[in-house]
Design a protein around this nucleic acid. Sequence first.
DNA 1: AGCCATTGAAACAAAACTGTCACAAAACTG
DNA 2: CAGTTTTGTGACAGTTTTGTTTCAATGGCT
Lengths: 228, 228
Amino acid sequence: MNPGILVVEDDKALCDLLTWNLSAEGYDVRSTGDGEEALLMVREQAPDAIILDWMIEQVPGIEVCRQLRKDRDTARIPIVMLTAKSEEEDRIRGLKTGADDYVTKPFSPRELMARVEALLRRSQPSLAGDMLVFGDIELDPASHRVRRGGEALHLGPTEFRLLRYFIERAGRVLSRQQILDGVWGMDSDIDERTVDVHIRRLRKAINRPGDTDPIRTVRAAGYAMDDE
Amino acid sequence: MNPGILVVEDDKALCDLLTWNLSAEGYDVRSTGDGEEALLMVREQAPDAIILDWMIEQVPGIEVCRQLRKDRDTARIPIVMLTAKSEEEDRIRGLKTGADDYVTKPFSPRELMARVEALLRRSQPSLAGDMLVFGDIELDPASHRVRRGGEALHLGPTEFRLLRYFIERAGRVLSRQQILDGVWGMDSDIDERTVDVHIRRLRKAINRPGDTDPIRTVRAAGYAMDDE
DNA sequence: AGCCATTGAAACAAAACTGTCACAAAACTG
DNA sequence: CAGTTTTGTGACAGTTTTGTTTCAATGGCT
């Protein structure tokens, strides 16, 4: 499924231009020239990024931005704002309000494309491909981050390697020795029971109250993460 | 050295008029009425901006534009296109192809000057798009300035390069060695811990009280810049 | 020369993380 | 069910890693 982008721009010609270009790049584009309608459209189906003209009719872009940031569901959507070159004041307020990037008019479509792509890669590594997923758990090897249900988790270095090791081998039972070899290194002379302790620490770190434990203990054999 | 401008216009009278005006403004002007020749001239010596008539003989302006955008070396040169008033269709296509601005004939030389100047101003300090943005932090590589929330910050040379390095690689964990290679140079024999010290100096410089620290420490791995 | 900003390193402090133990709890065995 | 084996937990002391301060060296500038 292609990333969805919402264009909010009341200059019809420019709006069409952007839509055309973004579509050509493979994005799923919707557009509107009205701030109110933009908010509705976002609520109806959240896009992966928003291109927002700062000077639109009815609702100022800055207000649209603020509204979006206020709602938990939409707060993390990347926003690129379009400003006229002289609107220095707006630019600053825009960044303060939570826009993620800005482009000053006039601009080349090429430039905007590049910005949008950069933002998407930054905010949604999963759209870029690299990212390990298991159920509602996401692990990003590049940024060393782990989230569950969208919420960031903090893992120590060993827990991180351990989780990664498990997700990469989801569905298989892993013996303590295998785990030691894979996570600590083949030549480690560490007690097997130490694995137990780290499994516990990992469980503690990823299971918020109410969550189901994705790690299954296999008595007399080891541990496993099950496919759903 | 004065900014160089290439005028591509086959109406001899108009071409002279533009050349005369631009020269008077202190620009270093070259001109041609032929699309093929224009491409050669650009390749020979890249101008800082191009004024391009959409309706020239031989090669259509749109094609010249496309050619220029295709080559990495010329892709970022600002282009102002000149169109007849009724050529609405061309205007759209022109912008799609990558022109940065347009002026419809007939126009006043004064107006064109203003547009060119605006484009150059934009492309000089930072090519307008070269401004690196991360959250509310702006870094202008050309003018060597950094701002956060609109407020100017003072960074030493190393801190500047460090911040730039991070913003350009936002979202990835960077090891101390990578940072040394990228910021100090591949052949530096500097202690890895020195990175820590500069990270601290950078943090001190960009985090005003109340700000959130954009630099995340990844234990046993390095540092990373993240949203939030 | 004198002053000031910058820089890399060293040293110490503060955190964060690790591996083991000892014991409790749970799961098997016959 | 009593005995055995295996796993879960909490505590802890030692290590590793990172944060911070300090300092001497360097180099630009006046």
